[in-house]
Nucleic acid binder design. Structure first.
Lengths: 337, 337
DNA sequence: CTGAAAGCGCTTACAG
DNA sequence: CTGAAAGCGCTTACAG
């Protein structure tokens, strides 16, 4: 492997200065057309490849947006990342994706790496373990724009894009009630997650408005968002003296798990039990019964987050207005309710 | 946002040289313990954060592995990425994830960016559009180790980790035959993808061995790996005079789509039609009927790819033996066959 | 064990 | 429009 070609090599061949080469390569306006052509041609001939590290180091711009999500393994996140990329690539930005694996320590490490790699901005969705937000606070202090996506926090000087959880949960709970359900349970993730708590509120509000009692033992928290866990939650609920006749799941993946276990227990859906999800999982449409869900526009949410961070990068710190975008999910009624 | 602290600032405060600070920070052996402690303490006090760009530029190591996959939105890939991360993080490497979106142009662009960002190695899974492999060839020439994962190509001086497609397809087709199926169809992606072609071979071989005829019109190619497309493929098959009684799907996602459409068409599974998948999708276990599949150990495949690239990075070009790892998938028999 | 100095490969005012 | 020069923030032989 030969030593890589640098602008110095090109400059020498062409008998011009490296400044000229640099300007030609970046399409600077202050350069003669012929010189530019000559440089470009020579660069191609010599198989030149710019060193982005050097370029970012001196220009103090990386044209990279860092994204950190709990996992890329779920539709909501992979799809919002596609939305982010869609906007970013159009503007000539690259997107670096990292997953925290729901680990606080890893999240801190990633954010630190991202900041130290001088990315131009960071879009973050917190891990479920994250209670302390000092790491992003610091990054913001260091002048790097941050946008919080979906899993946000309070009192941060950063824009956020998230779902209208309370309203969404209210709407879908109301739907279950309108289907004649009286004993509606709620299977969710850790209530320490803001989203889980907010949806709980909406759920409670809908019950209250309909004059239905709120039963604390109808709220089952699961540790992880996995099929199995929803199944266990259902088994627990099904052991109770008054079995639920409707279940609101925090995420589609939990609804799928619930339905699967319901099958095994011989529970008829939706006759005996209505099951509703929340999310934006394509899969929920293709299993049977197809799942009623509050669809979150994850792609568009990603796009919005990208737009905001691009704006903030453009302003480079000055007067940057913090935006809070609460996105309404949309109810999609299918066979499971 | 204040100007970031550099090693120069620390050096001045401590009245030592920047070389000393640098050595202390990186835990070099040739430094006095007290000096090191003093530097570390001061760094903390001044809230110092290293500039990774500068560090990589001068050390010519980035401690970053670039990964490019067609999409992160499918279980096989997101899970193999988790495997890659699992190994990489242990060795102090970060993983930068990029998706090509099955676009050749984007893939080329990403590979170029990765190389220009001087990542230490690249793990790549080709897009379905990729027929020309010059971009990775170039990267290898530039001295950057590349490992191909799952979607590989021939005649490349790079290690590869992929599935034993032919054998896997043979095994599962044989299983369908043993279930008494005589008219087995194959729904796959573009046959230009090596994997699709190799599984076709295994499928054909199993038919042949059982004395069953191969019908070309039983092979349906779909454009994208999406639920809908499998449904359309099934409809096409179901229009034929001799309807299939078994279907092998190239991917679990296609099997899910097939089963969904079968429901709509009133086809009983597995009585009328056996459906088998191929992949490693958790979901296939949780829909009903649960899907029989050839499970690929995606996580372990990612781990292996990471191990290989780490080795090659360690050898830094010299005498690097090219490895070809063909991983056997495992048949998991469930309700759909 | 520590420092002075060169270098990594670019960018960007400043002159001309 | 072009060049000389300083600088981005580190690392690393080379001396001592």
């Amino acid at each position: 492997m030969a030593k890589p070609i640098t602008i110095k090599d090109i400059a020498e061949k062409l008998n011009v200065s490296i400044a000229t080469v640099s300007r030609a390569l970046r399409g600077s306006s202050e350069i003669k057309k012929e010189t530019k052509m000559a440089v470009l041609e020579m660069a191609k001939e010599m198989d030149y490849h710019p060193n982005l590290l050097a370029s970012s180091l001196s220009s103090k711009k990386s044209k990279i947006i860092g994204v950190v999500v709990p996992t890329i393994n779920r539709y909501f996140w992979s799809n919002s990342i596609s939305g982010i990329e869609n906007i970013a690539y159009k503007e000539g930005y690259k997107v670096m994706i990292f997953q925290s694996g729901e680990s606080f320590n890893k999240e801190v490490e990633i954010v630190e790496t991202l900041a130290n790699s001088r990315v131009d901005g960071i879009i973050i969705s917190f891990s479920k373990e994250t209670k302390d937000f000092n790491h992003v606070h610091q990054v913001i202090e260091r002048g790097i724009p941050v946008v919080m996506l979906e899993r946000t926090c309070k009192n941060m000087k950063a824009s956020k894009v998230s779902t209208d959880d309370k309203n969404g949960a209210y709407t879908i709970t109301k739907h279950l009630i309108e289907q004649g359900r009286k004993n509606i349970a709620y299977i969710c993730g850790p209530l320490s997650l803001g989203g889980c708590k907010d949806r709980l509120k909406g759920y409670q509000e809908a019950l209250k408005k309909a004059g239905l009692p709120f039963r604390k033992d109808y709220v089952v928290e699961v540790e992880d968002f996995r099929f199995e866990q929803a199944g266990q939650a259902l088994e627990k609920l099904w052991d109770m003296t008054v079995k639920p006749d409707g279940i609101l799941c925090f995420a589609d993946i939990l609804a799928i798990g619930t339905i699967h276990t319901a099958h095994n227990l011989g529970i008829k859906i939706p006759e005996q039990l209505s099951v509703a999800g929340f999310g934006d999982d394509e899969t929920s449409r293709f299993i049977s019964p197809a799942i009623t869900t509050m669809a979150q526009p994850s792609f568009e949410m990603g796009e919005l987050a990208a737009q905001i961070i691009l704006e903030e990068i453009g302003l480079s710190g000055e007067s940057c207005q913090i935006r809070t975008e609460i996105i309404k999910p949309e109810i999609i009624i299918r066979e499971s309710t």
